[in-house]
Design a protein around this nucleic acid. Sequence first.
DNA 1: CAGTGAGCGAGCTTCCGCTTGACTT
Length: 824
Amino acid sequence: MSRVNFSEMAKNLVIVESPAKAKTIEGYLGKDFLVKSSYGHVRDLSEKGLSINIDNDFEPVYEVPEDKKKVISELKKLAKDAEVVWLASDEDREGEAIAWHLYQSLGLDEEHTRRIVFNEITKNAIGKAIEKPRGIDYNLVNAQQARRILDRLVGYELSPVLWKKVKPSLSAGRVQSVAVRLIVERERERNNFKVTSFYKVTGGFIPVKDAQKKSFRAELNHRFEDAESAEKFLKGCVDHTFTVNNVETKPGSKTPSAPFTTSTLQQEASRKLGYSVARTMQVAQKLYESGKITYMRTDSVNLSEFALDAAAKTIGNMYGDNYHQRRQYTTKSKGAQEAHECIRPTDMNVQSAGADNSEQRLYELIWKRTVASQMSDARLEKTNIYVSSPQTPYQFVARGEVIKFEGFLKVYMEGTDEEEEEKDEQTLPDVRQGDGLNYNDLSATQRFTIPPSRYTEASLVKKLEELGIGRPSTYAPTISTIQKRGYVVKEEREGTPRSYTVYTLKSGDLKKETKEEITGAEKNKLFPTDIGALVTDFLVEHFGRILDYNFTASVEKEFDEIAAGDLKWEKMIRRFYDPFHENVTTTEKESKKVTGKRLLGTDPQSGKNVYVLIGRYGPMAQIGEIEDEEKPKFASLRKTQSIESITLEEALDLFKLPRAVGMFEDKEISVGIGRFGPYIKHDNKFVSIPRGEDPMEVEEARAIELIHAKREAESNRIIRDYPEQGIQVLRGRFGPYICKDKENYRIPKGQAAESLTLEEILTIIENAPEKKPGRGSARKAASAKPAAKTAKAKTRKPAAGKTAAKKTTAKKTTAKKTPVSKKK
DNA sequence: CAGTGAGCGAGCTTCCGCTTGACTT
């Protein structure tokens, strides 16, 4: 790639990864430059099959995916007309590979191609980059190919093992399987955690000299293991003489957190705004597209010179120069590739931006975090008062904190994941060593040890980042994948009441109280499913290396060696693949199908064994043996139960449903639990039992009540009824619609459902767009007859809008149907 | 809103990382 004479240049094509970036850069470069986007990767391994030629040094089979064909053909056209094509994708491994794939699939040549990089989008930086073009770094490209091929080998060889040994359609991969493992192991840690209780003693003290002064609270520096010793201690305190033993004052300071990366933004938005990681990314994308913030998928905490200067100005203007402190942060997370800046406002002066409330809230968070990161430390004064009495070896300690200078705290304070212990923000009285104190009250409260918390989406991302697993662009999709596969569920759980004891000593009286609190309530936490646990155990047993938390880190090291030119990628992959593949083969041959079957005990009624296991339709309980002459009885587990922790009693309870509860209109009423929760069955019709009602408690009268309510709702649902034609106009979740022979039809906009005539209805049905086949059948057709695919694409074109809409509908329906039995 | 094993048959499922739309039933 030779230098080019600028004055002779007719036209330049610059290709970056993102269209929003392209727009900005075009503004900086002037009219001789056309800036376009590749929309990320333009070529990938073919989705069908492994697409890696194992015997030919792992030669990859690349293709341009369907949705990128248009991008490529357009870029190709523009490249043809351009004198020079500037490949300006990101400076990291993936970016280099994008440049190379572009070079290949656009059919570029060295003479007319330049590779440039810049990690700051300013006129200056881009100008400099253009002056210093380089060639494609093939070592870096090879490191990416190794990464890509390894992931494909792992994913596409491991997943089929799961299809055979556990369940079809499951998946495994370097990232997702470890994410699931983290959640499974955390749940087990919690299950094995022994909650113990202890007594925490606190006292309210009043200085003797100055009884007007408010009391302050101090905590004893000793916790009692049992009620007896706590009680004994308090009793003893009745005639203690308390004095101030020591007053300690020391200065302290707090430092602001680094500006946002993808991972920290996801965590803070989750803690402070309650956004899921997917929502955070969607909202951030909007802010990025409208030019309000820098790129939102980054692992860098770096701020550009421009941003540092802008922050200095803003802080000076708003709070005064003494609030400003220039800080340059360095990234410490494993595997960071530093292709971008941190996530920050593009204009520091803009305090509020965004098209709607959720954008505004996220923007404000980003603004505050960025500005605070360039502000001075907060200065504090920490005071401890130690209270003692000659009658006890223990001391009470009161802690107070006074802010002497707010610094960055004026703007922003990072949230925490820990359940907040109520922090008493008290101002301590001015006391001296030796001052006498009276106690107002002393109390010993029973507290409990807390097991490690379950992961939220955001705290899982944090953990993955710490382990160097996954990238900013994949955190959100990974979390969605492991939920889609049914390995993990995000759920709320109701807490359970727990009683605790409080002893209080006041005016010489010792009182014992039993109080109640709710414990174990969870919101938006990740729980492993039985399948998740089963698959994890299976993979850990047979493929421990890949499930190891350090696997990614160790292969990353080798990718770095490849990037440095010290290791051949084919050699690295060969070294990994041969033993791995051998392992796959023997596992397929030797291991048995896994069901997680567990013997719980015996059924007292029949004396038969009670098992739990994973069946075709998920976790279930079984009484008796398959081989028995009398077939075993089966019952599905409830959503909140797991084969790992269910007890014999709970399992036996499952067989109490469905139960007969009485008669109504000469037909039997029964109560059961189905796919959609508890129901009442009567005359082959089903009525849901409202949330919170126990199906074991529903009796005949209540059941009849619910049946009436359902009938009432039913009759309101029907707007029109033409039984002869089998046509009904119904009120549904999404508004009125027409139903004929179990097929639903939309009512066109502008027609009122109430006033439709039968004729009008029949026209609507006739003109309804033909239903597109679902995803599964479409693929089948395409693979059987390759011609069918192109034909379909052709017919779709004229009516692009409508047919496209219909297609998604069909897709969704199939997706929902998948878990249901095919027999139906 | 059932069923729940295992066997037969064919074809299907699946990875990670880069990017944005095109869908709102």
